[in-house]
Write a protein that binds this DNA or RNA. Structure first.
Lengths: 186, 186
DNA sequence: CAGACACTGTACCGATCGGTACAGAGAGTC
DNA sequence: GACTCTCTGTACCGATCGGTACAGTGTCTG
């Protein structure tokens, strides 16, 4: 028998990588069974809702990671500069310095977008709010803070796309370092 | 009989929209026949190479549009400010102010990336070079110009992703207008 | 009008899709 | 050891996948 909590997390991690590599529609059950090491029987026992439930839980898992490691620290921070540096470091770590794709962005672009529209919107919205509020506390106006936070999210997404398109992780590194400077500017 | 050149262009346009909406793997032949109004017979007569040839020609068609409407004007420009404004306007027009997705970026993120890696890389590389050379002519250093051009491409891609994810075309508009200012800064 | 040739609709192919049914394996409880 | 309940491998389902074969149909050339 499985240690339910632990094992499920590991399955979700493997599922995430499959979805990242092939997109929602491209991730066939064959690929999924290979990546997870679980047969269809186990898979549909764990996720009675099928592929859609798998993807939903993977997205929720990702959301949870960002909530814990990015959004909450942003909200709780006293020192803006430190908090922003921590966010940049967390993002760099999560995306493996540009090697890893953003599943939320990938879903947003594909035709599965409508199915997960709320989750996708929420992921970015909460990030933007948390970052914007931090920037406000550092002295920016409400609208400036919002715009700058929007710019940050967009830069990260764009850097991931371009890094992958050009197969050059340096793009991601440079974008993050520029972004940090831009966020901290007076 | 068809006016070959004209008709083929129209088919490619329809194909492009299908690929944009569903991605390369998600664009089934059923969807393609519906979008183009052509049966399988016609489709495989026009594109003996199947789906892969269709996608390749669509990408080549897009590349051609950008070469004509974006890259070449960038290369031939005397007035940098005017040229950059024209580029921004062209981009805004092409992407329907953020409603339309970038197929090249979409392919880059999906698993069809390897198949079209060279085309994808080339698309961005030529854009970046054309823009960077213009920026050099406007007085920037080589490395500054390159970085700023990279930032421009990445901003456009990121804005498209975020605009779609949050279903807010305003994001794209704002990003383009900020980008213009950033490109023209001394 | 005859023949050539570009084009198209339909039937069909094997493979794979997401999903289901179910018998049984394995571990925990009494 | 009998029973329960979670978990899993396998066979199978109808639908759809990308692609092929081919007999047309229409149009242009001689």
């Amino acid at each position: 028998m499985l240690k339910k909590g632990v094992e499920r997390k590991e399955v979700l991690r493997a599922l995430g990588e499959v979805f990242r590599a092939h997109g929602y529609e491209g991730a066939s059950l064959t690929l999924i069974t290979e990546a997870t090491g679980l047969g269809k029987g186990s898979l549909y026992h764990l996720f009675p809702g099928g592929k859609e439930q798998m993807a939903a839980e993977v997205l929720a898992d990702i959301d949870g990671w960002f909530e814990l490691n990015i959004y909450a620290p942003l909200r709780d921070a006293n020192d803006p500069a430190r908090a922003i540096a921590a966010m940049i470091a967390g993002v760099d770590q999560y995306f493996h310095s540009g090697d890893r794709v953003c599943l939320v962005g990938l879903v947003a672009l594909g035709s599965a977008r409508d199915t997960f529209a709320e989750t996708v919107d929420d992921y970015f919205a909460r990030w933007q709010v948390a970052l914007a509020q931090l920037l406000r506390r550092s002295g920016l106006s409400r609208s400036q803070a919002q715009r700058r936070a929007e710019d940050a999210l967009l830069t990260i997404q764009g850097a991931l796309v371009l890094a992958r398109a050009r197969n050059d992780a340096g793009i991601f590194r440079r974008a993050l370092s520029d972004l940090m400077a831009r966020l901290l500017a007076p």
